[in-house]
Design a protein around this nucleic acid. Structure first.
Lengths: 203, 203
DNA sequence: GTCTATAAAGCGATAGAC
DNA sequence: GTCTATCGCTTTATAGAC
């Protein structure tokens, strides 16, 4: 008997958990079946392309979340300071303070990078790009803004590695706090000395 | 006919490459056979424990390399400055400036962490520990030394993620240079003001 | 020390009943 | 939309010849 009529949309977050837990290769259909409570028939009904389509759907879901919760605030917040602060809050929430890994980061390091190249590179490109833009709006020049953005986005990935390696969420929180203070200090400093700001559409 | 009489020692670096390339789950025996040129008979002769023993041997080999090329220089160099500089040089060499991923980092993020928990946590513990000690010898207090060491060791992992995601070794070199300058600046600064140094065995 | 043959289990994917 | 049965292939591991 059919247990419950599911919707494709509801399955994706569970798929994400399975992929995060076992990786792409390790996420077998039997484990996916176990996690979702759906048989292969239902899974292939929702995702005719099989496992690859499931992973692609998960990546699209992640991208959507970050677009709305991270990049948009970064681009449209009242001030660069608020946008960057909101970004760090969202990131800590998302990764459960280091208890959850970044699937895109895992894919980037593994063989999956080539198969999902666009989603993987786009995720980090959008993130670092939006952050660099906010830093520029905060008064930084182009190159240091790009460098600091890369340092922050890469730093989050490194913090996740250490937190997993040591099974210690505290190291994640500690490293994020350092990154946050460094990024906000740059903005705050330029805000405190407005005469040092470059002309930004002073109309 | 037996192609060449191999030694276990010679096989390990090749195994490392295969694991790095395909991950633990993706490194099938057929791929290992292909990479090493050895049949299953030879592989199980060298590693009776199968794939798990192969991966453990690779991790031990990596640990050995870092002990001799990174941690020991860090602990025994003429000065903290030289030790830290040597560490960054060795790291850039080892990861081929971002073209090679860190297998321990990959294992840390994946399901393999639990199976190889000691090797994974020990790798980062030893690295961050030796670096923190060098920074303390350079004049830093205990807590900032630990924080900066975690920032550097985690930063390397993050740089590898971004370099892979964008398929761009330059971003690795750029991020490493920033980390290097930050770490060395702290040492150089304390060396320039020796009166600010804590008493360190002034006999 | 190396190989081939083989076993048993698991894989992704499909077909078709309901 | 969900299930079960099944296909063909690959997997890890073992056995035994050389």
């Amino acid at each position: 008997m059919p247990r419950t009529v599911a919707e494709r949309q509801d399955v994706i977050p569970i798929l994400a958990e399975v992929f995060r837990r076992y990786g792409y290769e390790g996420a077998s259909l039997s484990r996916i079946t176990e996690g979702t409570g759906l048989g292969k028939g239902s899974l292939y009904h929702f995702f005719p392309g099989g496992k690859e389509e499931m992973a692609a759907a998960v990546l699209a879901h992640i991208d959507d979340w970050f677009q709305r919760q991270v990049y948009t605030p970064l681009r449209q917040a009242g001030s660069p300071y608020e946008g960057i602060a909101a970004m760090f809050d969202a990131v800590c929430r998302y990764f459960l303070s280091g208890r959850k890994v970044c699937l895109v980061g895992v894919f980037a390091l593994g063989n999956e990078r080539d198969r999902f190249a666009q989603a993987v590179s786009g995720y980090f490109r959008d993130w670092a790009g939006a952050l660099a833009m906010a830093l520029e709006n905060g008064g930084l020049a182009s190159t240091p803004a790009r460098d600091l953005a890369e340092e922050v986005v890469g730093g989050v990935q490194g913090a996740l590695v250490l937190a997993r390696a040591w099974d210690d969420p505290q190291v994640f929180s500690r490293m994020i706090r350092t990154l946050r203070e460094r990024a906000l200090a740059v903005i705050a400093r330029t805000d405190a000395t407005p005469d040092a700001l470059p002309s930004r559409a002073a109309g």
